[in-house]
């Protein structure tokens, strides 16, 4: 390989800590590409300063820790590294309230939400919304610490318990309208403005997250689903993410976006090669970043 082609290699970083099946597939995919120079950026080991390094063209966020990812992405992005997703997208996608607001502002059908900051005001909001209602942590994932509240007695007990949890963020009471779904919801994958595939997440439990045992079945990407997911991705400025939707009698409602999305369960059901499509996009974005930097130095 001559120095010219060596110089044109794409310098791809993977921000991660624990390596799950998703990260392993992405690493293997990147290692198969002759034009990729892969660097694993372990968030447990890095020390960043305000200038931090610029030796990457693209940094793909696959960190299981959302707070580490958000701060690291901000510093890498500010130093000129293209990050996927952007710090702004991860900040919005990692916060259910900001996500709801972004979807609502974009005119996308999303469940009705109320936010309150004390158990008393949360109880008033619940009574106004009506039962059942879903209480979620604003920054949670995998269905963790979510509660379906069916009556006032349960509401009082759960709110009291939440107010005694150590993190103040449990006192941000994010209340979401209960949606009666048909034993499943939908996870759709959007990469660079295209809904590449979707899978139903089927469960007898009201929580259909794969982390809670939801099983994947292929879901056809209709033009309606494609357009809605692309709009949802655009609403949070996401380039490479998963959109979670529920089916209602009035069509789809989008309830979540996931920036460092998991896909091992979906891979069992869909035909698309999700890790290959992600790496394809990283290479394309890296080439664009390289060209932009070259142009700036002309």
């Amino acid at each position: 390989m001559n120095s010219q082609s060596e110089e044109r290699k794409v310098r791809l970083g993977l921000l991660l800590s624990n390596i799950r099946l998703e990260e392993k597939l992405l690493i293997q995919e990147a290692q198969r590409r002759p034009d990729v120079e892969l660097t694993l950026v372990d968030s447990r080991e890095i020390v960043l300063d305000l200038q931090n390094e610029r030796s990457l063209d693209v940094l793909l966020d696959r960190d299981i820790s959302q707070s580490r990812a958000m701060h690291a992405l901000q510093l890498f992005q500010n130093s000129g590294v293209k990050t996927i997703n952007s710090y702004e997208a991860v900040r919005v996608g990692g916060d259910k309230l900001l996500t709801s607001k972004a979807l609502h502002d974009a005119g996308i059908h999303t469940p009705r939400v109320r936010v309150a900051f004390t158990p008393e005001s949360a109880l008033s909001a619940i009574e106004e919304m009506g039962y059942p209602v879903v209480l979620k942590p604003v920054d949670g994932s995998w269905g963790r610490l979510m509660a379906k509240i069916e009556n006032r007695i349960a509401a009082e007990a759960i709110l009291e318990h939440k107010s005694h949890l150590s993190s103040y963020f449990h006192s941000v009471f994010y209340l979401q309208e209960w949606i009666q779904k048909p034993g499943r919801d939908i996870r759709a994958f959007v990469i660079e403005g295209e809904t590449i595939c979707a899978a139903y997440r089927v469960s007898d439990h009201w929580l259909t997250n794969a982390a809670r045992g939801g099983r994947a079945m292929e879901c056809a990407v209709t033009p309606e689903l494609h357009q809605l997911c692309v709009r949802a991705a655009r609403a949070v400025s996401g380039e490479c993410l998963a959109i979670d939707l529920m089916e209602t009698s009035n069509g789809f409602t989008v309830h979540e976006v996931n920036c460092a999305m998991e896909f091992k369960e979906s891979l069992k059901a869909v035909k698309a090669d999700i890790p290959a499509r992600i790496i394809d996009y990283c290479i394309k974005a890296a080439r664009a970043a390289q060209h932009q930097k070259e142009y700036q130095h002309v």
Binding site: N18, I64, P137, D139, R144
Partner: peptide, 11 residues
């Protein structure tokens, strides 16, 4: 042993 799940873990 793998690290225990933290509150900010997720996707």
């Amino acid at each position: 042993l793998a690290p225990e799940e933290k509150e900010d873990w997720g996707e």
